[in-house]
Design a protein around this nucleic acid. Structure first.
Lengths: 366, 366
DNA sequence: GGTCTGTTCTACAACGTTGCACACTATCCG
DNA sequence: CGGATAGTGTGCAACGTTGTAGAACAGACC
């Protein structure tokens, strides 16, 4: 039914292998032959059968991106960047949504579907440091986020502590003394929440502000709805605040909504800053200040590291941990911009690359 | 290197074909045999080689979703829904971003990558009615949106005219007389912009309001930035308005931003309604009224139609055009909710299914 | 007893491609 | 002039799976 190399070969009067060589850019082919083959391909509208090629080469040209949910703007924008970066390199991305469920995250590492792709960019939200054994698999992984450290994989993460500290110090530099935090995960030792909370506490300490537990708002899920809810509860409880540091932009936008509903002026009464610098932040009313963790760079680096490892032969290179530069982006919600101005970078935290010693046995990646 | 069916067969003491039969749920296998095979699979941690299966069965279990950009919330939420619906049916989705470029959209239909997937859900933004010939391909397609009608493919679309008319009438029912429109595409005969503009004009007519060209704001790209820009320009030009109908939520949120910047109260001075009902709308300040075109149903239906056609054998069924019900969701920006209330449905437009006669030659889908 | 039906399992031959090895010619070098 | 080298093309045998056909056996039916 479909046109195969065999048909092309016949029409061009060459062997099937020569067609293969033309298609794959093998250099030792006479120009005349190449043209004849290419003409036959055109004429017959031939396309390579990817399944056959994949079987033969043991490569699919696909990578998996596993994220909790695409409807969360941060992950949608991340996916956009990852797909674009992969596309530039001629690769295709297959997206898996885990809903932050432990079972689905485990499936991503061991499930049947993984066999269709050559590598995985994985942003876990349910798995934690006790699960690093699961990451010992026979295909390359790049881990995103801050839940799993020390796994046998490359890792692209963020300058969480430093950036959160800088954000907190920035609020204090604006004269705010009662800085609330929204999005804490009590008792957790790992993850973005723990790290950013650490940065917040370090910021308070450096600013000479007391640590008041009433200012810390728990929020398991970092959605807009929970941000609004936590903010409302804090206001209902009569907690006195003049600034809010939300651990992501969704929480911040939810909190903004709740503050507005109570008639509290931002930034007049309460200054507000988020984290992630999603596109929404720019167009909130008032425009939301945020921490830009270097998302574009994260996506690009993750794809680069993964493809590098997929293409690697021989002895495995040491695993790397890469941290992009992050920036504090001041907008209206912290009163950092004058009318008409879009945004102002009020701080930069330097990133870097680090080689990681992985403990225990490590699977070679091929 | 990797474990194959051959290894499993050897260990279980059966033929390789029996292993295949077990894996594929073939019923005529003795329980004892099945268990022996399953044990061997467990022991060896065997996974089916998808590439080989794909080659043999001429199916990949993959479908492509082609959208302009994932960073646009509407498409991110659509992708989320499509991936979930496909996942429920055991299928995997591969996302292609076209950036609304003609070249990339053409590639989606004819390019090399399509050969890896069994079908396509395609939301074109650059291709138009003159391009329906391109849709004659040898794999099933479900078209989304309103740019391409009459192509040989199933189509899931929206109740654009009726919903836009209802939104306009709703604004007029609130006593607004100077209703601006943001997002028009002058001169275009097809596409969401044209249809929604038609609905707007019908709404004005039915409400007995005059059609003032000054109230129509052009906006090629439906991004927040353009929404803000168009709104600013209209205000700068001194156009008198008391309501805005933005052709999507991104434009509406941009416009909201611009209105706020000028100190114009929403909904006090200007009532505002968008289109798409993305998650952001709910958490805008003030919460944005919008038209819910039935996105979840669109995604589910698209996947259903596509899988149905992929699985179809024999004579091709007629193509269908499906329109989900749409709803006008009133929130703060039109003053439709009382404080504390989330949203209120102020109108419903009935959808339906229609069989389509395709003109010209039609490729059979296998 | 012969035939038929149902159950359980297997052998063989693809699916369409590419890695490997090699054949053949022309050119170059000493 | 012999032998190495570069350039150009081909044949064969996989890659790991499943569709097709059929073997072997048991029980049911006439």
């Amino acid at each position: 039914m479909a046109v195969t190399m065999h048909d092309v070969a016949q029409r061009a009067g060459v062997s099937i292998k020569t067609v293969s060589n033309v298609v794959n850019g093998y250099p030792y082919i006479r120009a005349a032959t190449r043209e004849r083959v290419q003409a036959a391909i055109e004429d017959l509208d031939y396309r390579v059968n990817m399944s056959a090629r994949n079987l033969r080469t043991r490569r699919t040209g696909l990578i998996t991106l596993a994220v909790p949910e695409l409807s969360l703007p941060y992950f949608a924008e991340l996916a956009d960047s990852v797909i674009s970066a992969a596309d530039d390199a001629g690769w295709t991305v297959l997206i898996e949504q885990t809903s932050a469920s432990r079972e689905r995250e485990t499936d991503v590492l061991s499930g049947r579907r993984r066999h269709l792709t050559d590598g995985l960019i994985f942003s876990p939200l349910a798995l934690g440091p006790d699960d690093i054994a699961l990451f010992t698999v026979d295909f390359p992984i790049v881990i995103l986020g801050e839940r799993v450290f020390g796994a046998p994989a490359d890792h692209v993460t963020m300058n969480n502590v430093a950036a959160a500290k800088a954000a907190t110090l920035h609020l204090s530099s604006l004269g705010r003394r009662r800085i609330a935090l929204i999005g804490a995960h009590e008792g957790e030792q790992v993850g973005s929440a723990a790290l950013r909370t650490t940065g917040y506490l370090e910021g308070l300490a450096e600013a000479g502000l007391p640590h008041d537990p009433a200012l810390i708002g728990e929020a398991g899920l970092w959605h807009r709805s929970t941000g609004a809810e936590v903010m409302r509860r804090m206001l209902d409880d009569g907690v006195e605040i003049d600034a809010v540091f939300a651990l992501n932009d969704a929480l911040a936008l939810g909190a903004l909504h709740a503050l507005h509903a109570r008639g509290i002026d931002v930034p007049g009464d309460v200054a507000l800053i988020g984290f992630d610098d999603v596109d929404d932040a720019k167009y909130a009313v008032p425009a939301l200040s945020s921490v830009d963790p270097g998302r574009a760079q994260i996506a690009r680096t993750a794809v680069e590291l993964l493809l590098e490892r997929i293409g690697a032969t021989g002895d495995p290179a040491p695993f790397r941990k890469v941290v992009p530069d992050s920036r504090i982006v001041g907008r209206e919600s912290t009163g950092d911009v004058v009318p008409g101005q879009d945004s102002r970078v009020v701080g930069v935290q330097q990133g870097g690359t680090e080689l990681v010693q992985v403990v225990g046995e490590v699977a070679d990646s091929r």
